[in-house]
Design a protein around this nucleic acid. Structure first.
Length: 293
DNA sequence: ACCCAGGACTGAT
DNA sequence: ATCAGTCATGGG
């Protein structure tokens, strides 16, 4: 069993915040995967415990970002009452550094899917194409294995229209057309450009892969939730604010670690029912005043 | 029945 | 370069 300083990490918030899709809570422990090894993690006070065959403290530390200078990162945030409220809602929320390949697949599968469904797809892909390494325990299929899958097999995993995207993407990666290792050596801008060459990867998904897979804290994914909170809180609830406009604002306002700020905002608005104030302009649908005749 | 979900791709302007 | 239409599927 491994023991590490937890630095205030909140596993529940972290592992349910839409970054990872293969962790399950069993009793007080989380069962999942780190560097392709099955493992369990749990908190005991300020200590983070982990156990699993071949698991190293370095791997756990890297996965949960325990080596990051959190004080510096948070100090780089702007004075912003909304962001401070989001951080106060889940102070122990942390960004993960996951394996790029599975992160790539998960977010290709994430298009117009709810988090629970992405988890189901992840599990289906493991069962259908992964290697069984224990009772009800299947590793995530590597690119070579997934590239052998037929599109109909993928559709059986309830991928819907994402089946073709994953089908092509797996072949692109397996063929070496795009190297995920190489992506990691590039600047964030260039890395994003490479990821965008992968089928099924647009701007939002590329930014998720950069943030949750490569630890690029300057990547700022804008999904429907982040769009909603930005528009409501920073754009005066104006309808149809272009994403590019929001991105420019986020770059300037949230600073170099904006991706971390994004995750606090995302988790906050999805889980705190009192997070967003009611719409400014309440479309008054009061019953028309009774007409006395 | 209707609307939404951590969007991307395509073809028409 | 922008922009609507379209793409499956499940949950509320």
């Amino acid at each position: 069993m491994l023991s590490l300083p937890g630095h205030g990490i909140d596993l529940d918030a972290t592992l349910t915040s839409g970054q990872s899709f293969s962790w399950k809570k069993v009793g007080a422990r989380w069962h999942g995967w780190i560097e392709r090894r099955p493992c369990q993690v749990w908190s005991e006070g300020e200590i983070l415990r982990a156990s699993g065959p071949g698991l190293t403290a370095a791997a756990v530390s890297r996965y949960f970002g325990l080596d990051l200078p959190l004080d510096e990162i948070f100090a780089s945030f702007p004075q912003d009452p909304w962001l401070e409220r989001a951080r106060a809602f889940a102070p122990g929320l942390r960004l993960l550094r996951q394996e790029p390949w599975e992160t790539l697949c998960n977010f290709i599968c994430s298009a117009l899917k709810q988090i629970v469904q992405i988890e189901q797809i992840n599990q289906s892909l493991r069962r259908a194409f992964g290697a069984q390494v224990g009772a009800n325990l299947f590793s995530y299929p590597d690119p070579a294995r997934l590239a052998l899958a037929e599109e109909t097999e993928l559709r059986a995993c309830r991928l819907g229209f994402r089946a073709r995207h994953l089908f092509v993407a797996a072949r692109q990666i397996a063929a070496g057309e795009i190297s995920l290792d190489h992506v990691g050596s590039l600047s964030t801008i260039d890395a994003r450009g490479e990821l965008l060459r992968v089928r099924g990867v647009g701007t939002k998904v590329a930014n998720c892969i950069l943030l949750f897979g490569y630890g690029r804290l300057d990547a700022f994914p804008i999904d429907v939730w982040v769009e909603r909170v930005l528009r409501r809180l920073y754009f005066n609830d104006r309808p149809r604010v272009p994403h590019e406009r929001m991105r420019l604002f986020a770059d300037r306002h949230f600073g170099p670690n904006r991706g971390y700020a994004q995750q606090f905002l995302f988790h906050w608005i999805r889980n705190d029912p009192t997070a967003l104030p009611p719409p400014k302009k309440i479309r008054s649908r009061r019953p028309a005043p009774a007409i006395s005749r």
